[in-house]
Design a protein around this nucleic acid. Sequence first.
RNA 1: GCGCUCGUAGCUCAGCUGGAUAGAGCAGGGGACUUCUAAUCCUCAGGCCGCAGGUUCGAAUCCUGCCGAGCGCGCCA
Length: 545
Amino acid sequence: MIREDLRTAIATAIGALGLVAPDEISLEVPKARQHGDYSANVALQLAKQAGSPPRDVAAKLLDALSGLGLRHVERIDIAGPGFINFVLSPSWLHDLAAEVLDAGDTYGTNARMTGQHINLEFVSANPTGPLHAGGGRWIATGDAIANLLSSQGAQVHREYYLNDVGNQLIILAASLSARYNSRPFPEDGYVGAYITDIADDIRARHGDALSDEQLCELALTSIIEGIKQDVGRVGVRFDTWFSERTLHERGDVEGVLKRLRLSGHTYLKDEAEWLATEALGDTRDRVLVKADGTTTYLCNDLAYHRDKFDRGYTHLINIWGSDHHGQVKSLRAGVEALTGKPDEPEIILGQLVKLMRGGEEVKISKRAGNMITLADILDEVDADVARMTFLLQGLDTKQTFDLDLVTSQSMENPVYYVQMAHARIASIARKAVELGEVQLPLSDVDLGLLTHHREIEVLRKLSLFPDVVADAADQRAPHKVAHWAHEFSGLFHGWYHDCRVIGVEAPLVQARLWFTEICRIGLSNALGILGVNAPESMARIEDSQ
RNA sequence: GCGCUCGUAGCUCAGCUGGAUAGAGCAGGGGACUUCUAAUCCUCAGGCCGCAGGUUCGAAUCCUGCCGAGCGCGCCA
């Protein structure tokens, strides 16, 4: 990795000047091309320490650096207020090509997180109805983050927590019962059409003599089945669907209470049992056992997290909608009281999705009954379109999901732009075979012929992929990979327009065949992280304008 | 009232652990197909980075205040 080589060299040069290097030597890829391939700002940072102007420091560093005989470095410039810019010869990119080919589908991966065993919990929407359209964001995001963490060597377990007990279920049961028995509808019940559908379906299959309890059980099974189907349609598989009931059945909740009592974290007040979370960073203490003797959501959730640790994970991550941010401190304080771990679980918050239809916001509410379900979306668009749309945006921005745009004008979706780049590569390969071009082994091919500025641009972008993935993994930011894929595709399309593979001189044909292969690897790996398909061909559009 | 998140082109958004001239897509103007799929490419236009201060060599980025938006402040889940 050239970047690391340069960092080491800079550190050496700093040492040679008798200065102390900063903890991390920043080596950026400048936006402006004339600023070279990599740019270092250490001279500016060290000016104070050295007691001389930044440009002087830079000049001394440059002297020290040029004595090191760095590979691939064509020129080193000092520019602006004291930046040190490295201009690399194209040879480093040709080395890169070999590196990418060698790595294949592991290009962009890393072993930094090896040994970590992470439990990633996401979606976990209550099984009181089908997943709504916004839920797709959590499915796509969670899966992509899992892929990112895996790419860094971590072992990741995808988990969905099913709250299959409690109040909401009671409301669900009452709503169902009203429909099933044609009785007046309860206040605050779920009005969604799905309630009637489920009730009708159950009546058709099991008759009309069921008790409320039997009714609710059958409905719950059916709803959970539906959720699993929706998740599957998006292309995601959970390793575990964890039922909250098991916690109660096994006595885990009681066990956690005992443990907290023993460690002196609880106290009684106003006929309830409290957990002293304020001392651990919460805004105030929380109730664990209500006056009526039942446990709170937090109490059950603590038992759940205890169970996750008991299963041996080294780290827990939960992805939550920002509407739950108020629970973060309580849960973390509770987990600390329970386990002594102050930084668990890690909670990734994402802003909610705002659905637009006909230029107006559609408020989703299971109670009001105006549901737009995820299944509705998937009936209209490809899972790839949905995933890419959800993943293109950072988690801390509330996402505007325009149903009209995504469904009717889906041709504009960037996913096609990226997929088309991949399809074009496959198409070139097919054409080459068709015309009898035989791809020679890499060792017989001169990649040094890849000197077109389009090729250089593409290769340079490709070289950044591992950094982008590592960064995205660290920041739990899959959108960075989505943007990289889009940008990379743009550069590829530009190359495609200017550079032909078939029909140029034989040695160049060979070099470019390998060039397209490494592009394919990069794209395919990026799409793999996003969970988007990398097609071999695109369906031709019939009626484009 | 307190807390969390956000405010960047007409629209949807990147960039935010400080760096050089603030980017992309869409929408708008103008061009490019006898070629490996034009779902493509090239080009033009478009910006007090919410407002005001502060920190420093340097601020869209960090700090403070204000304005505006969303969400949260239960012995609900």
